[in-house]
Write a protein that binds this DNA or RNA. Structure first.
Lengths: 230, 230
DNA sequence: GTCTATACTTGGATAGAC
DNA sequence: GTCTATCCAAGTATAGAC
């Protein structure tokens, strides 16, 4: 953040400016993690991107790692809110796959998952980071499990695999696809998987007997999703 | 590597010693990537673990990144050879799942995949590393595809999802499960997934009609696997 | 709150002795 | 081929001026 031009005489204005730099640093930390990874996310690189001084990282967050965790918090909160909105009106497997495909494409293009993946990788080198990151991933798997429960409860699916284990697999697959797609810059194969998943979902719905095999069921939501965790 | 004690007078002995340090450095690089991640894999840390001087990293490999890539080559070669031996006598889906479960447990306990995952994460921060890592992952997905082809060709599976896309998903899931298990130190949920996969495989074999639903087919290999890529 | 300046540490890489 | 010594760049973190 540049100097605040004219000196502000109101406490509220000063606090506002301080909050602006906090947000600017968090945003810059997110972008730096996406572009340069954990190893490249230094206080200097982040502050440079935010347009402010390097020392402010330590003034506002105490350490670089704390800033990175604040960045993860921000990404996690924003994405979970968006996921909830997308999935709230889904109550079929193929509908869930549709929503997941759209969400995944967004995440892939914007690099949201990269933030998560880089911090997991960085957790190996920074003492104490692992548990903090794990704490922030839990809501993702919980959300996945709730979504699976809501749209699969009455299908034959939950008989063969518990929703908790399926949620873990979904999150793992999500992260793995992000890594591979990000690595060779080719998003097409990962997106193709969702097309296959949709076909499989239609197949399962056919076995369930509730919906035809080819048609895409767009039933109105009669069972609202539970509220998001705060 | 410690000093070679008595001075060796044979060229072959000297070359032997040099190769020993090369191997020691590669082994130490692998262990350092597992323990301290990409960000912690410095020339000093690796050489310290190998018991030799830091300068030898640059003498033998030119740069730290080159040593890390050599480490990935070593892990990749060793694991692919082992995978090939495990899968070579498999020609059913449930047999493949059995082999994959055993292999995954080994990889998880030994941390073999961590080497791969850390290098992918590090590729974001080091210019030019990405393509080199991608080049070394290709054999893994190719192997997965060949294995899927060999044991699934006559099942209804390949009608709904091409083996190439399925192979990508398997590798992605493999890496994602490694990351999550490594993060919170709990391997049980990932391993539970393989039990579910086995049940699913038996289900598919039942639909295929070629094998009974509960029995594990252990037919001798009549179609040898193709040779490994060099 | 923000900036400049600086102390301290670690890491990549090279030169030269043995 | 290996080691010691060293240079230089980059990073974390703090102190003090504004």
């Amino acid at each position: 953040m540049a100097k605040s031009g004219a000196k502000s005489q109101l406490r509220s204005r000063e606090a506002e400016g301080a909050n602006d730099t906090r947000l600017a640093l968090i945003g810059a930390a997110i972008e730096t993690l996406k572009a340069d990874g954990f190893a490249g996310a230094s206080a200097r690189a982040i502050a440079g991107r935010a347009g402010c001084n390097q020392g402010l990282v330590f003034y506002h967050f105490g350490s670089v790692v704390n800033l990175l965790l604040a960045a993860l918090d921000a990404v996690s909160a924003a994405r979970l809110e968006h996921y909830g909105a997308s999935v709230s009106r889904v109550d079929s497997i193929s509908g869930l796959v549709d929503a997941a495909a759209a969400i995944f494409q967004e995440d892939l293009n914007a690099g949201h998952i990269t933030v998560l993946v880089e911090l997991i990788g960085g957790a190996s080198s920074t003492l104490g980071l692992g548990p903090e990151v794990a704490k922030r991933i839990a809501p993702w798997t919980q959300f996945a499990q709730r979504s699976v429960d809501a749209s699969i409860a009455d299908s034959p699916f939950d008989a063969v695999i518990p929703s908790g284990d399926l949620a873990l697999a979904i999150v793992a697959l999500y992260m793995g696809l992000e890594m591979l797609s990000h690595l060779d810059g080719d998003r097409a194969p990962a997106l193709a998987l969702f097309a296959h998943a949709k076909r499989l979902a239609a197949l399962f719905e056919g076995f369930g007997g509730s919906t035809p095999l080819t048609a895409k069921p767009q039933t109105p939501p009669d069972v609202p999703m539970p509220e998001e965790a705060p």
